[in-house]
């Protein structure tokens, strides 16, 4: 798969990454090279193969329904870029 500048722009938008327009061709060529490289997988027929999501095929463990966490807002918000009145602040969201 060969990607062009518009593809990269679209992917960068989905991933919320600011990409310098001047670097789009470089990204496009790098990403295309990687995609071409991984497409080596196409050579093998996997139609009958179950995908493997986890190396160990275990089942999910369940947690008892207990409240174990205390309020640590002050500690957690000490590393936050912008808070006020206990709320995290972001530029105005319009819905």
């Amino acid at each position: 798969m060969s990607l062009d500048k518009d593809d990269v722009r679209q992917i960068a938008h989905l991933a919320r990454l600011a990409v310098d327009d001047q670097r789009l061709p470089e990204h496009a060529s790098n990403l295309s090279a990687i995609l071409e490289f991984v497409e080596a997988m196409d050579a093998v027929d996997t139609a009958a193969v179950e995908p493997l999501a986890h190396p160990l095929e275990m089942r999910q463990r369940l947690r008892p329904d207990q409240v174990s966490e205390e309020n640590q807002r002050e500690l957690f918000q000490s590393v936050a870029p912008a808070v006020e009145g206990g709320l995290y602040l972001v530029p105005r969201v319009i819905e």
Partner: peptide, 12 residues
Amino acid sequence: SLHEGFEGVTGI
């Protein structure tokens, strides 16, 4: 998201 009480920002 809380929009009231803030100028130009949203509180989360």
